[in-house]
Design a protein around this nucleic acid. Sequence first.
DNA 1: TGTTTGACCACGG
DNA 2: GCCGTGGCCAAAC
Length: 118
Amino acid sequence: MKQPTYYDLVYAVVREIPPGRVSTYGAIADYLALGASRMVGWALNQCAGKDDVPAHRVVNRKGELSGRHHWRPPSRMQEMLESEGIQVENDTVVHFKTLFWHPSETLGDHWEPFEHLD
DNA sequence: TGTTTGACCACGG
DNA sequence: GCCGTGGCCAAAC
């Protein structure tokens, strides 16, 4: 990998998710204008194992930990969330609607993560 | 090079 | 408010 791809954009946004908050595939896909929220899932699939990307803060639109099966061990994702004060019950984020974080909430609409790279 | 699949979402019934 | 269907783009086969 030599130049930034949409993977890097996804990673960059995920890293900006504030601790104790959660975001969704759809929100990230919408913010990055990827056109397909599945691509976020693919990107996160590649980031599995990377500790520098808090992928545990990304859940589906229902607030369910749909990606926990891709963690080692699967319970790791829930533990990470709980360690940040996020309550998880039955593989679903409690108060998900309240803890939901949208990229534009913090990054704004003109966030250029790689503008310095050209 | 065509088909299948994927940590999904919006919409209509 | 739940269920089935289409769509979306990229990687793996």
